[in-house]
């Protein structure tokens, strides 16, 4: 199929492709620039001066990464981050898709009311304090649930998912209904397989959200061994920054962490999440194929 397409390219199309490709590559270059900078820094020994930009390391070392791997709290932070990400994403997927499926059904009673009830939450929040009291009251402090439950469903993601499900053809479900299948069975056996694109998107959003989230861990985790990777990373990276809040006192302490170590820490926290993407992207295409075979 692809080879046939290629044969048909005409000159105008070729020009379009070339320009298009050129623009995209330019975009890639500007995008990669800061990354390359950090990567170079992370691979340089700390006695190289980085007060000007370098694109390639003058001297090469793994020492920074080795220090990162050996850091006690980076290790525990990594494990905690993986746990919250996996658990949080799974729960979010299950609850969001279930609810979206229901809200996509025009015959569900008071559907509009329930939808509005959920949408409304996008605009109002009670603030930090009531949520903190709630977590404390539920005895969730220092547990992974404090990181997973408060962000279980996003109204936005729910609406997007609902819209996707609404766009699916209704015939398949109807025939299953006639065969006597219940809603949960239909959702699981028929709707979910058709929904790969949105599931993958949801998954990706939530994986990234959970992986990058640090504020809640800072609020609800009071012991260093319970903190997630981002909190540990921030602490290392922010070391030596002048306190934004301090109106006085130049700090006497010197920073402990070198810039090269900071760069390695940033790379270490960022790379895993970037690595996930190409893998996930396959499912986009798979989702497309599933969509094609329907009917």
């Amino acid at each position: 199929m692809k080879s046939i397409r290629k044969l048909r390219i005409h000159p105008g199309g070729l020009l379009f492709d070339t320009v298009n490709m050129g623009m995209m590559l330019l975009l890639c270059i500007t995008t990669l620039y800061p990354f390359l900078y950090l990567l170079t820094m992370s691979l340089s020994p700390s006695d190289v001066s980085f007060t000007t930009i370098k694109i390639w390391p003058e001297k090469f070392t793994w020492a920074n990464y080795q220090m990162v791997f050996e850091h006690k709290y980076i290790r525990s932070g990594f494990v905690n981050a993986v746990i919250r990400t996996v658990l949080g994403t799974l729960i979010t997927l299950v609850v969001t898709v279930s609810a979206a499926y229901v809200l996509a059904k025009p015959y569900f009673p008071h559907r509009k009311f329930w939808t509005q009830l959920i949408v409304l939450t996008m605009f109002f929040s009670g603030g930090l304090i009531p949520t903190y009291l709630m977590i404390k009251g539920l005895n969730l402090m220092n547990t992974v649930w404090a990181l997973v439950l408060p962000s279980m469903v996003s109204a936005f993601q729910l609406i997007v998912t609902r819209n996707f499900l609404q766009s699916l053809p209704a015939e398949l479900e109807e025939s299953a209904k006639i065969d006597g299948a219940n809603d949960i069975y239909i959702l699981w056996k028929i709707v979910i397989p058709l929904s790969m694109p949105i599931l993958v998107t949801l998954g990706l959003w939530n994986i990234v959200f959970h992986w990058n989230q640090w504020f809640d861990s800072m609020l609800y985790m009071t012991r260093p061994e319970n903190e997630v990777l981002q909190v540990v990373m921030r602490r290392i990276v922010l070391d030596g920054e002048m306190d934004m809040l301090s109106t006085a006192v130049p700090e006497m302490q010197r920073q402990v962490n070198t810039e090269t170590l900071k760069a390695a820490t940033i790379m270490f926290t960022t790379i895993p999440i970037i690595l996930i993407y190409p893998f996930v992207q396959k499912y986009f295409i798979k989702g497309m194929l599933v969509g094609a075979v329907k009917g």
């Binding site: 229901v102 304090i129 729910l158």
Partner: peptide, 28 residues
Amino acid sequence: HRYLTILLLPCIIYFFVFHYFPLYGVQI
């Protein structure tokens, strides 16, 4: 539509506990 109701329930509980209940904080 009891199966659908079951599917929706966790979501609604969540929004009440973590979004509507803390709203009393707005009075600040």
